[in-house]
Simulated scan of single mutants.
Amino acid sequence: MTYAETAAGLRMIAISSGKGGVGKSTVTANIAVALADAGFSVGVVDADIYGPSIPGMLGIASGKPAMSPDQKVIPAKAHGVKVISMAMLSDDDAPAILRGPMVTKYLQMFVRQVEWGTLDVLLLDLPPGTGDIQLTLAQAFPLSGAVVVSTPQDVSLKIARRGLRMMEQVSVPILGVIENMSGFTCPSCGTVTNIFHQGGGEAIARDLDVPFLGKVPLDPNVVDCSDEGQPLVRAASGSPAAESYRRIASALVQTEDDTAGIATPFAWSLVEDSGQPAPGLVATDSPAERLVALDHDAAGLILGWADGTEQRLADRDLRLACQCAQCRDEMTSARLLDPESVPLDLQLTRIWSVGNYALGMAFSDGHATGIYTFKALSTMTGTELEDV
């Protein structure tokens, strides 16, 4: 799978949760197998670098993965699903003692330097929280959307809400909410006991105006199946939980993509005049902030927005508008960059996508650390062109 193929035909879905212990990895493993059983080509990135669990749930033995002739990692495969995980790169009891930059490096390697082949769906099993890994994914890869897993417990729902808001802030579409551990069905009498209350996941989805993908009931077989490396959708295919997983998997692949936006990811070198983004994936939900066209000429950058407007911004103006820590005080937002130090003939040399919500830019003075969100770009003053 090449970087271009990732943008063109792959649904990359993040499975996230605000807190640990909600069964997110179990949900990911079973949805992946349900999709594979339905005929889709599926991959899973175990993005929980510090606590990888997907290989164990799918019965993948430990051991260093092989390398392809072009030096890409060959993923393991089980139950029709391709998997890459930190657990495959270390011993069973060896902790991943890594600082943030190394975690980011591994995560990008898991997506870009793995011989995935042609995939329909790539699920990313995220660790709980809203930290480095979540931001790296949102900034570096063209996520089709995110799914948030929660239990009906009030504490879990409150933290799930934060996870939803975080994804919204980086313009990752929310594909829906899954309520896991939604009631326990007694295997003897069939009585349903709502251990963590009921209806919380559906309520939070309604409050935030996002889809509710379904409930997954507690099943005593889940623990045994996970420990044995046999997903519930295979080992207990007729159970209510397995049926829920299949319905959720079907809902995820039936979600229609809005293609009114530039294709991401891309990296356009203006010096070599290569890599200009083509129409493709959606950028944001707001038409006024959805970038559908991008061009550059001697006068500056030309941005086309989904509401029909076009905007021209001079290269030097973009450089002066940089909000990075080198150019603006992080506390006061006061400008640190001296305009007199920016050459009048300064030029853009490279533009690249930052997730689905921003552009990165490099300039002829060597500066390349600014991130320009679509929202910020759409409100910048410049020479407005006629609507076309």
Rank of each mutant, 00 (worst) to 15 (best):
Q230N: 14
G261C: 12
G261W: 06
R206P: 03
Y245G: 02
P173R: 07
A278T: 15
A242D: 08
K215D: 12
T193G: 05
G199R: 06
S250I: 06
C186N: 07
I262C: 02
D209E: 14
P277R: 04
T264Q: 03
F212R: 02
D258I: 09
L218G: 01
D227T: 12
G176K: 01
S182I: 08
G261V: 03
F212G: 03
V253I: 14
P240G: 02
I174Y: 03
L232N: 00
Q198H: 14
V170T: 06
G201Q: 07
P173V: 01
W268G: 03
A251P: 09
I174N: 00
A205C: 09
S244M: 05
Q230W: 02
I204T: 04
T264G: 04
C225S: 15
P240Q: 12
T185G: 07
R206F: 04
S188T: 10
Q169P: 05
V216I: 15
P187W: 10
F212E: 06
D258G: 08
P265Q: 08
A242L: 07
Y245M: 07
S171L: 01
T191K: 11
S237M: 00
P217T: 11
V223I: 13
V233Q: 05
P220T: 13
K215M: 12
I204N: 02
M181F: 02
S239D: 11
Q276Y: 06
G229A: 13
L218N: 04
S237Q: 01
T185R: 09
M181S: 04
T284P: 06
I262D: 07
G201F: 07
A267P: 02
Q198N: 12
G200R: 01
N221G: 06
D257R: 15
